[in-house]
Design a protein around this nucleic acid. Structure first.
Lengths: 214, 214
DNA sequence: CACACTTTCTGAACGCTGTTCATTTTTACA
DNA sequence: TGTAAAAATGAACAGCGTTCAGAAAGTGTG
């Protein structure tokens, strides 16, 4: 019977539809405003049905997260014409922060949401996230190999760079860079556009690495 | 009449009690588990009373955040015997990440919680947060003045360092460093204790700055 | 077609959340 | 002691995630 396969396909279809609807909602409203009932309404099923496809909200959100990681990977992995690995490293960071700042609620879901570790057992929602991480580390190592930077421990340096860009994006997303808006903090950074600050600081860190010699 | 002043004092007392209770709850349970009813129960008032002292949950949380910033400032500002400003900078970073990793839910409240900007008008919940920021920037400038590091733009460098430590702490808190636990990411960092990784990476970044010459 | 069996779907119900507000209790002062 | 003002209460409301008895739709057989 081919009907078995058709049903499998339909089941997968609905799962995808749910993820798409949830992703749209994340884009339209804020992270906190996305509820099971709203997702159900958008896919035109009752709320109970969602629980036939996802064990609970955490599992559903994990699936959305997984899809978000794929989007992020696609966006960030876009190859550039540059030859210099260090330039590509800078571009990698820039695309990372751009993605995060353009998709704050997806970014929250990917990197800032509290996690139900028990739901993480099966499947691998972080697959594309891991791929991103590998992209970074191998690029850093390429820079070292090409003599563009010096690094005793390229893996730790990669972690530091990830932390740097993540730190900037998450502070930006959580509105913590608004301290640079008012004048209560009197420093040259005040008044600057925070998105620009993030991007420029990424560039600065790259040039610091470039200038560093053993 | 002195009764007027006494009432003012009692009012302030309850406000403080509420903040203390909420802070305790943040420590005991997770961030998400702290509800108005639980706070009310702990201070032995009805839930409605809380709304006589705080306009809504956001305002209450902002007050808790403000107290948390003070705690953080006290903890992180602890003076060390070191003379070298760069060593003190490294210690500053270390105390920052230690505070964050020991008080994950307070840290969430301070730096990761989505913010109701409209509640930020009066008062200055970030006062001690700003003080922390100033501590960092002035220390960085001290390092530059002492010739311990080179920095074209000390303010941007301070922002970068803040982003770095915040990035590490928040990734740690959000359980994202668990990718270094399993073996699915085969790199030298795997299996390492993540708290240690964070602290060591802070040290590494300091030594990178130290080695950097113009 | 009719029947039985399975799968899919529904939406009311439960206990939780933040928030409001009519009501009651407590306090203050003449 | 009486009365006006202040403070505290907790039931009620809408929305949340989640469950589950029952309705509906689909499937295979006689």
């Amino acid at each position: 019977m081919g009907s078995q396969q058709r049903k499998e396909r339909e089941k997968e279809d609905l799962r995808r539809k749910v993820i798409t609807a949830a992703t749209e909602l994340f884009r339209e409203e804020s992270y906190a405003a996305v509820s099971m009932r709203k997702i159900a309404k958008r896919v035109e099923y009752s709320v109970g049905t969602l629980y036939l496809y996802y064990k609970d909200k955490d599992e559903l959100f994990l699936a959305v997260q997984s899809a978000a990681f794929e989007q992020a990977f696609t966006f960030i992995n876009a190859r550039s014409g540059k030859d210099d690995p260090l330039e590509r490293l800078q571009e990698l960071g820039e695309r990372y922060v751009r993605f995060g700042m353009k998709n704050p609620d997806l970014y929250r879901l990917m990197f800032m949401m509290e996690h139900p570790m028990d739901a993480m057992e099966e499947g691998d929602p972080w697959h594309s996230g891991i791929a991103l991480h590998n992209l970074l580390t191998s690029l850093v190592k390429e820079c070292v190999a090409a003599g563009r930077i010096v690094a005793e421990d390229p893996d730790r340096l990669s972690f530091a760079l990830w932390s740097l860009v993540h730190g900037m994006v998450s502070l930006r997303i959580s509105q913590r860079l608004t301290i640079y808006n008012g004048a209560h903090l009197n420093c040259p950074l005040c008044g600057i556009d925070t998105d620009q600050l993030v991007i420029e600081t990424n560039e600065m860190m790259i040039s610091i690495l470039e200038r560093q010699k053993n």
